[in-house]
């Protein structure tokens, strides 16, 4: 029993070491908040560890990502924060260090609905296929296609590529 628990712990630790950065980045893009991303990644990984006996190691990242995405959906729908103790002043982020692309994408994403943003992040950052995105969100492939199409159409209205080397 002790040997099994050690192997389980080691497997999970290896998984966290390899996946935490990826999950944190996905969570940050989905929520726009480092604090929220921290909380959601923590809970997603905790739930993944709780279910570790049933999760295949090769599917663990997809499982954790699915839990993470559902936690963001839950949070959005539920809108009930857990009361926190008084907090310290949040860390400042140096917005001026952001690239032009990141800045523009951040503004573009601001105009999307929460569902459209989730789909765009999963498709263009996490590189999920339409079918994988559909399974992650619990919706049909057709819905992914149509929502993605609307999202891109909305983004296209905001994005005008530079022509002849000059900024638009």
């Amino acid at each position: 029993m002790f040997g099994q628990r050690s192997r389980r712990t080691q497997e999970f630790t290896t998984f966290v070491d390899s996946s935490a950065r990826y999950l944190a980045r996905t969570a940050y893009l989905l929520t726009g908040s480092q604090d929220l991303a921290d909380d959601l990644v923590q809970e997603a990984l905790t739930r993944t560890y709780a279910a570790w006996d049933r999760v295949r190691v090769q599917d663990a990242t997809a499982y954790a990502r699915r839990v993470l995405v559902n936690l963001t959906i839950d949070r959005h729908r539920r809108s009930e924060p857990v009361p926190l103790e008084w907090s310290d002043r949040p860390d400042a982020v140096d917005a001026h260090a952001r690239s032009d692309d990141a800045d523009e994408v951040a503004r573009m994403l601001a105009g999307l609905t929460p569902r459209q943003r989730r789909i765009v992040v999963l498709r263009y950052f996490d590189d999920l296929t339409e079918a994988q995105t559909a399974e992650c969100l619990g919706i049909s492939v057709g819905t992914v296609k149509s929502a993605c199409s609307r999202a891109l159409a909305s983004l296209r209205e905001q994005y005008t590529p530079a022509t002849n080397g000059e900024p638009s």
């Binding site: 630790t13 950065r21 980045r25 923590q42 990141a102 994408v105 950052f125 590529p161």
Partner: peptide
């Protein structure tokens, strides 16, 4: 642009998870 921008934007995030805390 989406791919590049999302990747750059994601670089702002940090990881604050410790496996021992989860376990």
């Amino acid at each position: 642009k989406l791919r590049a921008g999302l990747t750059d934007l994601a670089e702002e995030s940090a990881v604050h998870v410790q496996p021992d805390d989860l376990i």
